[in-house]
Design a protein around this nucleic acid. Sequence first.
DNA 1: CTTAATCTATTGCATATTGCAACTGTTTTA
DNA 2: TAAAACAGTTGCAATATGCAATAGATTAAG
Lengths: 147, 147
Amino acid sequence: MNGQESYQLRELIRMLERKLGMLEDGEMACCGISMAQCHALVEIGRAGSISLIDLAKLLNLDNSTMSRTVNNLVNNSMVERQLDPNDRRYITIRLTQGGLEQYHSIESGMGEYFMKIYDAIPKESRAQVLESLQILLKAVADSNCCA
Amino acid sequence: MNGQESYQLRELIRMLERKLGMLEDGEMACCGISMAQCHALVEIGRAGSISLIDLAKLLNLDNSTMSRTVNNLVNNSMVERQLDPNDRRYITIRLTQGGLEQYHSIESGMGEYFMKIYDAIPKESRAQVLESLQILLKAVADSNCCA
DNA sequence: CTTAATCTATTGCATATTGCAACTGTTTTA
DNA sequence: TAAAACAGTTGCAATATGCAATAGATTAAG
């Protein structure tokens, strides 16, 4: 019934994904660290401190994979592990000074980039675009799960 | 100047990416073939036939990576390589019967999924959302390249 | 209170993906 | 006709990934 228009929706999202994917590999490509590490770095930075398991959930990765990625970040002196004194099963992952700087640099790079995109949207359309994304996001969330 | 709102844009896109990413790993996860293969399969299906280099450009991958992915698809009997008789440097990549079926199944699965999303958008907002995506896409494209 | 169950995190293993650089064979150009 | 350019493939090394098994810590059960 809505085949025509939903196809259009699909294509638009597809192209958007592709364009934004380019971004990942290109411009923003994380100064010396891998993409996996970069994603982790940002999440750790945003969280302030976080356990391995929560980080893995956040990034949708296996715990073992996450553990190794954190290892790499530790080797790059970007983050440090601490034992959680309250429950010694947990570790607390936190950015080092260097990691913090890297994190800020990524955030500000991303910020600039999205500022540029935002400025490229005609003034009179900006509110509409933001609202639409919210609507779309909700629609995706609502139809996300379970057949 | 637009820091506030562009940040909102960034967060919305971020969440959208995440939600759609889940989709990739979840529901639609390509019946037995890898994500890389799935993307390639769809592009080949859409193109009808295509050379390796064009396919690599389309998917933003290194030629060698593309070559190997095509290899995998060939091993899975999804696509076949032919020498281009006009210029024997080129190969022509084409879906096999099985590949075609897989392709149709993916397309229809995706179609259904996006239909569901589309239906979840309030009727009176649908046109706006589509239009907004176009605007956003253009903005991304315009600010994509070169500082 | 002590054993069993549960939980976080890490490691061994096996496999897959990726890009660069070197190479083969083909076509175009000088 | 020799050299340059091009499409595609392969060797290589780095990285990522998930599953299963394990160690150590905490909680629940008997």
